Simulated assay, not measured.
Amino acid sequence: MSDSNLVLRPDLRAGLAVLAAMVVAGAGIVAAILAGDAPTVFAPIVGAVFTAMVVLLIATLLRARIVLTPHEIVVRGPFSRQHRPRSHVAEVVRATIIAPRGASGESLFLLDARRDLLLRVSGGGYKREDIDRLLDVLGAPCSGPARPIGAKEFAEAHPGLLSAAERHPYRFAFTFTFAVAAALAALVLISLAITR
């Protein structure tokens, strides 16, 4: 941190633990496919998916950061960069949104004077004390539920802040699962047609 900038980086220890778990899980699933009765065509597909997730996590750990300067707030992801004028942040809503199956993630919703969303900052990869420090230095009024909250309840209290996928997680999950299943079925049919 310099005299004028606050720079937050993801929690490296937690990130490395997740990375190790992903590598072990991916290798285990691929090994089970190859050792079991499942078509071997699934092994490289699963391997590619886990490899992509590992690369994304490594890129996030290396590149992601939140930077607060005297003039702007910058949120950099592995492949993106968003910035907004600091002077436009009039209010912050801090919430831990509960996703299906009990997963949750903390978010900061930076709002302008009209309560329109300027920027959403995902705090899930950062230490809680770092997020507290960011809010303290930012100095904008902060509100939000004191407990983790479901997406539907949060969207009713704060309309327009959550994406459609978060407001309707089961519809999104069903559509995504159907698309992946259709793609896998097409790959299996293509591989069967090639081997004949």
Rank of each mutant, 00 (worst) to 15 (best):
A14R: 13
P169K: 09
G144A: 06
A103Y: 15
D3W: 05
I131V: 15
P100T: 03
H88G: 06
I29T: 06
I97S: 00
L134G: 00
A17W: 12
F154Y: 04
A182H: 03
A52T: 07
R65F: 12
L56Q: 11
A193L: 13
R65K: 15
S4I: 08
E129A: 14
R94S: 15
I73A: 00
I97F: 08
A179E: 07
R101L: 12
L6T: 03
T69Q: 05
A164C: 03
P159N: 10
L34K: 10
L34C: 11
G160W: 01
G102H: 11
G150A: 13
L110I: 02
G77D: 01
R167L: 04
H168M: 10
T69K: 04
M22N: 09
D3F: 11
V93F: 01
E166P: 03
L16H: 10
S87D: 14
A35V: 07
P159Q: 09
E156I: 07
V137K: 12
G160E: 03
V93H: 01
L187H: 05
I194F: 14
R81Q: 14
R94K: 13
I73Y: 00
A165Q: 15
G123V: 01
L62W: 10
H158Y: 15
A140K: 09
P100S: 10
G125F: 04
T60E: 11
A164I: 08
D132I: 04
A185H: 07
L162C: 03
F50C: 00
A14S: 15
P141C: 12
C142D: 07
L119Y: 04
S107K: 06
R147F: 12
L161Q: 04
E106V: 13
R86I: 09
N5P: 02
L6C: 03
R115A: 05
F172G: 01
V92S: 02
A193G: 10
R115Y: 10
L16V: 10
A99R: 15
A90L: 07
A173R: 08
R101I: 02
P141E: 04
E91S: 13
A90I: 05
D37G: 15
E156T: 11
A155K: 00
L62Q: 12
L110D: 00
L117W: 02
L161R: 02
L111H: 01
Y170P: 02
A165N: 14
I149T: 15
L135C: 11
L34Y: 07
G77E: 02
L62E: 10
R114Y: 08
L118A: 01
L61E: 03
M53A: 13
I58D: 01
G124P: 04
L19H: 03
M1L: 09
N5L: 09
F176N: 07
T177Q: 05
T51I: 05
M53E: 11
E153Y: 05
T40M: 08
